[in-house]
Every structure is written in structure tokens, then in C-alpha cells.
Design a protein around this nucleic acid. Structure first.
Lengths: 209, 209
DNA sequence: ATAATAACAGAACGATCGTTCCGTTATTTA
DNA sequence: TAAATAACGGAACGATCGTTCTGTTATTAT
């Protein structure tokens, strides 16, 4: 911070630095994602955050403002990470159908492995908050749009390469894929542990492509 | 209530009735469904319940025990109502594919009409509570199983009548249908208002049947 | 060394949470 | 009418909520 004193026409510039942060902000955000993802917004208390992030109440509030702002930042960070992963996989791929299949298989594996069943942070937040919090609604909407674009471009590529049926429009298929992805995440959050259920759904989904 | 006093071998049976309830328990439950559905469990306060159900705190607690019990009862009542509707429609139907289409179209209409976007009470509760509350988890699981059975029987009937493709097993298709139904309800809860999005999903789903 | 100040730890705040308690009212049987 | 008692209205409870305040510590430029 800078303070400039102007006395009798002369300017004195005092700069004084203070203590450095003892934690990494992004690492703290990742911890916040973990606990919000697991317990939801209303289910996570300020004390939960203090305990889980390992920093004091004052540092938490000094750094992130309040609970709502911290949640919002966490969800945005999660969105960025998740989107980047899928986007890169599909853009690099030269067999989009196969890559999409891998993405779904991965979602199934995560759903079964997940000892503390978390589902998808975006889906969870959407269900819990989208209708009560405009900022969260915006993030959810932005995520849906981006994912729709990513899937649409991928399907188009697959259709041009002859890997995916042209019977249905790319956008139709993109929305269909996204819908089943959401459904699977809800299933996981509900605690479904039967692999056959997931496999059946994936089988039916890919019978369309 | 009955009190039986036994004095010197003689039994005296005193029955004294008290004030009658000024509200209907099922109607109160329906109101509870409304507000829990809209705001979720954690988002609904005891005061919300008092205000919305229109009865006093004491009556509320005397009648339903506590918040968790009231929620549980509400969800069970919702489940029964929703299941009965779908089950009856499909069992009466002589063109199951068409009836399923009607059910999905109805879900789309509700999603678009819903000014206070509620999604599906079962899906919402599943996402919010299933992993933190065993009793809710049981209800969710029971609902999934019943719906899977209902859809499986329906698909079998459709396949035997030649209305639905036999390419995929009835159970596979049932799980696929249920998954897309969940997805659509999440979309609604997220505030999606574009009919085309829903129509595209339904179109893709029914291209499989 | 001193002044300046952000980061920190933790006590404390008012508000709201879910729940219980108490005194009154209304209804029924004896 | 009298006795019994569930239903009722509303005050009150302790606990916990999210947030703020206070005082201390650590770091840096002067």
C-alpha cells in the first residue's frame, strides 16, 4: 500500500509492507471446493470452513469476503478446471465418439469409487442454489452454454469423420449427452453403487451416436 | 386416550376427549411438500413451516415430531403420489411408447410453466440429503427401484406389442429413461426456459425406443 | 531501531436456528 | 356441570449461525 503526504508542496511517499500470507490462496480455494462439494452451501458452516481450510476466521473473511463470495469463487474455479479437461480431451481427439465414451466411463468410475459420494459440484449447486441465488444461476447457465458448445463441436467433428451418426443434429446430440451426464451425476450423489446401472445407461446413450 | 384404573379388583375406564385438530394433517403435509420442494431441507426454517402450514409451532411439533420427521413424511407422501400417477398411466396404456412420450412432454410443460422452478422433489432431496441422511437415502433408493420396475414392465409390454424396439433389454431402456427424466428435472431446477433444449433431449431419447 | 500495516488468533456479536415449555382454549365423556 | 386432556398461541430456550472486532505478530521500507 502507498500513502502520499503532500506537505508545503513536497510529496513524501511512504511504503510499508506487512506480514506475508501463510497460505496459498488457490490451495485454500481447492479445499473450499472439496467441502462445499461434499456438504453443499447450506450444509457447510463457517466453522467447517475454518477447520477444513486450516486458516483463521479473520484470514478467511479478509481474503474471501464472505461465505457466498467464497462459494462463488470455488464454483467458478471448479467450472474452469472441469471445462478445460473435457475441452482439451475432445479437441485433441481424432475419434470423438471414443473419447466421449472414455469421458463417460471415467464418470462411472468416479461415481463408484467415490467413498464420500460427491456427484458433480456444478449439478449439486445448480439444484441447491440456482433458483435462490442469481450469481450462482449465472455460473450454472454459463457452464451449460459452454458445455453445449464443446459437445456440439465435438459431435460435428465426429459426424464429419464418420464416427457419429448424422441422423440427429449435432446440437440435439450435444444436449442429449449433457443431459445423461447430469443424470449419472445425480445417480452417483444418490449413492448408486451398482456398476451395471451405469453401464446400461452408457450403453443406451451410445446406441444413439 | 384411555386410562384404566383398577381398584379393589374393579376396573374403571375413563375416557376423556380433548379439543379437535383445527387443520387436516394431509393438507398440512401437502403444504410442507410445497415449501420443502421449493426451498430444500436446509433452506427451510421452522418459521417458514409455521408461516406456510398456517399452524403454530407447538401443533407442528406435537403432530409431526421434528423437522426431519416432517420432511421424511413429506417426501414419502410425494413419492407415493408421483409413483401412483405414472404407474397407473402405464398400466392402463395400450401404447406404452406413446404414454411414455406423454409423460415426458408433461415434464417439459411443467418445467417451462413452473414460475418458481422446483424441479423434482425426489431429485432435489436426493442431491441435497441422500448422502447425509440414511432415512432419506432409503426413500430415494426405494423410489429408484420402484420406478425401474414400473418402467421395465412398461417397456416389456411395449416390446411385446411391437411398439418399442427390442434391440436393447427392457431393463437397460428403463434405466436410460429414468436417467433422462432425472436430467430433465435438473435442467428445470437450473432454470432452463428454452423449450427447444427439452424437445431435443426428448427427441434423442425416443429415437432409441 | 522505528513506523507502518497486512496477516493472524481468537473472543465476541447479534441474529436466527430448531426445539421446548407454559398457560389458555376448546371439546368430549362422565 | 365437572373433570380430563389434546390442541393451541406464543414466549423462551440453548445452540449454532455468519460475521465483526480487538489485540498480537510478522514483515518491510525508512
Amino acid at each position: 500500500m502507498f500513502r502520499i503526504f503532500s506537505i508545503f508542496g513536497n510529496e513524501f511517499n511512504f511504503e510499508a509492507m506487512a506480514r506475508t500470507k501463510e497460505f496459498n490462496e488457490d490451495q485454500a480455494l481447492d479445499k473450499a471446493i472439496e467441502i462445499f462439494w461434499h456438504k453443499g452451501y447450506n450444509g457447510t458452516s463457517a466453522q467447517d470452513l475454518v477447520t477444513h481450510l486450516g486458516l483463521s476466521r479473520s484470514s478467511l473473511y479478509d481474503t474471501f469476503g464472505d461465505k457466498q463470495k467464497l462459494f462463488s469463487k470455488s464454483l467458478q474455479r471448479y467450472q474452469q478446471q472441469a471445462q478445460d479437461t473435457v475441452k482439451e480431451l475432445l479437441e485433441k481427439s481424432d475419434n470423438v465418439k471414443e473419447t466421449l465414451h472414455e469421458i463417460f466411463k471415467q464418470a462411472v468410475i468416479e461415481s463408484l469409487e467415490d467413498r464420500i459420494t460427491k456427484g458433480c459440484f456444478m449439478v449439486n449447486s445448480s439444484v441447491e442454489l440456482a433458483m435462490h441465488d442469481e450469481e450462482i444461476a449465472k455460473i450454472v447457465k454459463s457452464n451449460s452454454q459452454t458445455m453445449e458448445e464443446v459437445f456440439t463441436n465435438a459431435v460435428k467433428k465426429g459426424q464429419e469423420a464418420g464416427h457419429i451418426s448424422k441422423t440427429l443434429d449435432a446440437k440435439v446430440l450435444a444436449r442429449f449427452i449433457f443431459n445423461n451426464y447430469s443424470g449419472i451425476r445425480v445417480l452417483a450423489r444418490a449413492g448408486e453403487r451398482n456398476k451395471q446401472v451405469y453401464d446400461d445407461i452408457v450403453k443406451a446413450v451410445f446406441s444413439v451416436l
